[in-house]
């Protein structure tokens, strides 16, 4: 018997319909992502009912393409991994049902995967993951510091008390009329900005938690104040001030976390890890920790995709984690189980 593992993975937690075939947990045979971003841009954000509709429109196309590109047959698959949550319930449903259907038809084991586990294990495609590990997960839906003592063992050290970091970018971009999604727009504009505006420091009750809603209100206040005084807003400078404030918060908490846990590796994960300034500042910060390896994933595996679910799913599969046909999507889903 060969030791190779082949996992078919399905991810539909938000606005991407994605299916991948992954060999041995870190080789991508195919990774098909159908993004709905253009549709949701018209709405200024992700509309849950619309997202569900687009998933069902895409699922058969994405599945056929993923199988064809992988060059393997469904018969050869060892397990079907799927994102069980967290995410938009109507969207998750489509992926869960598609997975159950494949598992039933081919009589294969079903492996439930937490979306954040997927983001973290995306790093397996670019580095050998070392434990203990600290993951900084930053995306449109999540902002977490996750400690992993060993493989597939998760402890959340800090999380957001209000908005996720990507959400904060989107909301501020809306205030500044920069369009959706906000992250890339603010990141680009901030490059031309400088230190004109000062935004308040964030305060949280728990030392490793995040909070972004105060910053968002501060930006709004500032915009209104400038309007009141008839001053023209320097959008680049505001983008700069907001981005620096957000990243100050994120990096400060990461540093704090490194004081509480001893790790061999820090991994960055999630859609916001595409942010150039974050990559830059985190890399510089980690220079002062020569004993800790840093992994920054390539852009292709920062945003939601199924390859990352396949990477995490392969580990979960080997750990014996299974779901049966009665399993369901979990909009809120605890990573620490």
């Amino acid at each position: 018997m060969s030791n190779k593992s082949l996992v078919c993975a399905i991810e539909t937690s938000c606005d991407e319909t994605a299916i991948a075939f992954i060999e041995d947990g870190n080789k991508v045979l195919s990774n098909v992502v159908s993004s709905q971003i253009d549709t949701h841009r018209g709405f200024g954000g992700v509309m849950p009912e619309v997202a569900s509709r687009l998933h069902i429109e895409q699922i058969s196309l994405v599945l056929k393409e993923a199988i064809e590109k992988s060059g393997v047959s469904m018969e050869d698959v060892d397990a079907i991994a799927f994102t069980q949550g967290p995410g938009l319930i109507g969207s998750l449903h489509i992926g869960v049902l598609a997975s159950k259907t494949l598992a039933w038809y081919y009589q294969k084991p079903l492996v439930p995967v937490h979306h954040i586990a997927g983001h973290i294990y995306a790093n397996a495609f670019v580095t050998e993951i070392q434990f203990p590990l600290l993951a900084l997960v930053v995306s449109g839906g999540h902002t977490e510091l996750v400690y992993m003592k060993e493989d597939y063992n998760f402890e959340i050290l800090g999380t957001t008390q209000d908005d996720a970091i990507g959400e904060a970018y989107d909301k501020v971009a809306r205030v500044m009329e920069l369009g959706y999604p906000g992250g890339p727009a603010i990141d680009a504009l901030a490059k031309q900005g400088t230190t004109q505006y000062v935004l308040p420091r964030v305060k949280t009750e728990k030392p490793l938690d995040f909070s972004f809603s105060g910053l968002k209100s501060a930006v709004l206040q500032l915009v209104l104040k400038e309007q009141r005084h008839g001053r023209e807003l320097d959008k680049a400078n505001l983008a700069y001030a907001f981005q620096e404030a957000v990243l100050d918060e994120v990096l400060f908490k990461t540093k704090k976390a490194l004081e509480t846990v001893e790790v061999r590796q820090v991994v960055l994960a999630g859609g916001v890890s595409a942010n150039s300034r974050l990559r830059d500042r985190l890399t510089r910060m980690m220079n002062s920790y020569p004993d800790i390896a840093l992994s920054i994933p390539p852009l292709w595996c920062t945003t939601d995709n199924a390859a990352m679910i396949g990477a995490a799913g392969t580990v979960a599969f080997k750990k014996g984690i299974r779901a049966d046909f009665s399993t369901s999507a979990k909009a809120g889903y605890d990573l620490e189980v």
């Binding site: 058969s60 056929k64 199988i67 049902l97 598609a98």
Partner: peptide
């Protein structure tokens, strides 16, 4: 979803 997946494979 079930029908679409079955017809795809």
């Amino acid at each position: 979803t079930i029908a679409k997946v079955l017809a795809s494979v």
